[in-house]
Simulated assay, not measured.
Amino acid sequence: MAKQATEMLKGVLEGIVLAILARRPAYGYEITASLRDRGFSDISEGTIYALLVRIEQRAFVDVEKVPSEKGPPRKVYSLNALGRTQLDEFWRTWSFLSDRLEELRERN
C-alpha cells in the first residue's frame, strides 16, 4: 500500500473497525481477517490490537472473555451505545468529507 494510502487509512481505521463490530461481535483476529477480506491486506494484527485497546479504554465496546479451544480466553468485542454514537458521528464526518472531496475533484 502506498504511503499516502497508509496515512489516510490510519485516520479512518477506528471507524472501519467500529463498522465491522456494528455487524456482529468479534475478536481481534476475526476483525483483522475481515479487514483483509475487504482488501486491507497490509494491516497488521498488532495495529488492530492497539486500536482495540484504545476503543476499549474510550468505552466504545463491551468486552467478554470467551473460552478458546487453543490457549487463553479470547476477548470478544461488541459495539455498545457509546460506540454506536461514535460510529454515527464517523459516518456523518465521512459523508461531509467525501462530499467536499467530490466537489473538489469535479471542479478539476
Rank of each mutant, 00 (worst) to 15 (best):
A2N: 15
A5W: 13
M8A: 15
L9E: 13
K10M: 12
G11M: 12
V12L: 13
E14N: 02
E14C: 06
E14A: 06
I16N: 03
L21G: 01
A22Y: 02
G28S: 07
G28R: 01
G28T: 03
Y29T: 12
L35D: 04
D37H: 13
D37M: 13
G39R: 08
G39Q: 08
S44C: 08
G46T: 07
I48G: 04
I48M: 00
L51P: 05
L51S: 07
V53Q: 09
R54W: 08
I55N: 04
R58T: 10
A59S: 12
D62S: 10
V63Y: 07
V63D: 06
V66Q: 06
P67W: 03
S68T: 05
E69N: 06
K70V: 14
K70R: 09
G71R: 01
P72Y: 05
R74D: 02
K75E: 10
Y77K: 01
Y77R: 04
L79V: 04
N80Q: 01
A81V: 08
A81E: 14
L82W: 07
L82Q: 14
T85S: 09
T85V: 07
Q86G: 04
F90C: 06
W91R: 09
R92I: 13
T93A: 14
T93W: 08
T93D: 13
L97V: 13
D99Q: 07
L101S: 08
R105I: 11
E106F: 01
R107W: 04
N108D: 10
N108S: 12
